[in-house]
Design a protein around this nucleic acid. Sequence first.
DNA 1: TTTAGCACTCTTTATGTTAGAGTGCTAAAA
DNA 2: TTTTAGCACTCTAACATAAAGAGTGCTAAA
Lengths: 343, 343
Amino acid sequence: MLDERKMKILSAIIDDYIATAEPIGSRTIARKYHIGISPATIRNEMADLEELGYLSQPHTSAGRIPSNKGYRYYVDFLMPSRKLDEYEQAIIKRLLKKRVRELEDLIEEAGKVISKLTSYTAIILGPQLESSRLKHVQIIRLEEKKGLMIIVTSYGTVSHHIIEIPQNLTDSDLQRISNALNSNLTGKALEEITQEVMNSIKADMIEYDNVLNVLLDLLMENLDETKENNRIYASGSSKMLEFPEFRDVERAKNFLSLLERQDLIIRVLKTSCKPHDITVTIGSENPWAEFQELSIVTTGIFVEDKNLGICGIIGPTRMEYSKVFSILEKVTDYLNKAISSLL
Amino acid sequence: MLDERKMKILSAIIDDYIATAEPIGSRTIARKYHIGISPATIRNEMADLEELGYLSQPHTSAGRIPSNKGYRYYVDFLMPSRKLDEYEQAIIKRLLKKRVRELEDLIEEAGKVISKLTSYTAIILGPQLESSRLKHVQIIRLEEKKGLMIIVTSYGTVSHHIIEIPQNLTDSDLQRISNALNSNLTGKALEEITQEVMNSIKADMIEYDNVLNVLLDLLMENLDETKENNRIYASGSSKMLEFPEFRDVERAKNFLSLLERQDLIIRVLKTSCKPHDITVTIGSENPWAEFQELSIVTTGIFVEDKNLGICGIIGPTRMEYSKVFSILEKVTDYLNKAISSLL
DNA sequence: TTTAGCACTCTTTATGTTAGAGTGCTAAAA
DNA sequence: TTTTAGCACTCTAACATAAAGAGTGCTAAA
């Protein structure tokens, strides 16, 4: 644990660096943040902080910048808590008022709000449906041999799939099959609906024999597709180019291509996100090398202990953590309320 | 009309500039493209071409670069037609094989293929549903007071909307209403379903009186939402940063924020796209100033004379037009086939 | 323990210089 | 009349050099 004076200095350096993106020297600290000690003393303390690993120096005669360890200490102990200003409050409140009828739209809107308010890139991972329960299945005929299979989950997500209707099933057959599927499967978690369950349904309804087989296989397939609802919504990526960190086009390009690698982003979000808490992953704390100079702040969206998605922000390690925390907290707060009213 | 020698020179300059992004001088042309005349003669011709507006000079002692007018002439008269290589053929063919069951997925895939093959940004505007016909409407009950309204169009697009089911309608009521809606509305183009049509249905089914009113209003609302299916899919934007045109971060940022302005992009696509033809809009030919240094190549996706979407490429004016044309042509070709088989 | 003073380091910015590419013009050649 | 060689001229990009500025670490005094 650092002593109070070191904390003050570290805090001042990080605050300043977050604001200016420039290495900061002893003189500046003494002038701008009146800690009541001379630059020389600050220099000594800074040398200590560097030795302890909280700061680093781009080159011998430059000021100091925070290291990842420094940011970590800042986030854990030093970061001031921050109230939202009226503008931010207003924008977030408007989220709730938007006429949104589906979970996915809501989540997308939330992403836009977050990126708008923070200027960082918001990444939102849609509802994880493994633990959702099946609410309704229905097969509707569209044409002679084409139908629509609709799957509704307890999270309010709807997925539809155009399917081939085998042979000459009548409409009432379809209805009966739909009913049977519903009475057997409704209320089950998606992950509980396994091949065995399907087999037992098949056994119960041998009258339809292989026609049913085909439909059940299709359902199974579509359920799997539904489960893997790993759609992510990223918004506000162009704003990131305003940060001096990305003044170099090469870096900007790397960042943007990173965002296009959906699979990687999904894994990162999932590993970094701890339930019921805002999690920060700073630079090299991230196991993927591509994120060396980026920080990720995530929080889960939970309603009734169900994980309905992950809300994240990705930005340079020099990030306004304090602002990001306050906004992320508020948005997920509102999101939770909005979702509850939606379910 | 230019004489043949001027055409050759203009052609060489544009080909070279497209490949290298460097102003090109008389000496280089004489060396690389053996037209059989000396640099001095080429210089004279270049001065003529500049006076005619086909070329311009970044500064007095630099080579020439094509002007917008030059590109226009190139695209209209000079551009070599180009065959796809095997790799490109293979990638495009794979499009058809992808197991895709919905129009929108297909369109999205096509966008990815285009951006992959061209390295420019592909922008695809989803099916314009105004002229599509209603294929099926159905209301399904999910809970006591919640239902799902499903709208299927003749283009194979499905849209669903969670709605409140008013009062205590029974399931068979819902079925009857669905049937009535279907028999009255199926086959009608979406744009034909007006308030008047709705009113006449209301008149036919007074038994349900205001309950029906509510549902019909909801349907109307949702149809409107369905019609405005202006979803665009952009892919491959990060690759654009590799072009020297975007080596300046400021330009890169402008380009990326441009892409985020969906409404503008939609308008641009719609105005630039002429039916059944590949259209090129070069730089300032575009009425929107933001596109000064960009070119847009678009083509409509038509099946049975119905516009099912617009396929576009956006890139720097220094674009490999020839390549883009060949790829765009082939992709929409395949797309048409794939869509026909889907409908 | 703190601070003033100072020599030293390193980057950034400005300035000047040079090499190279390309042009336009003129006069000779075809 | 058209083409070409030659040449003076222009402009940029690249490099070297110098000066200014910011910041440090160390020493010695407070």
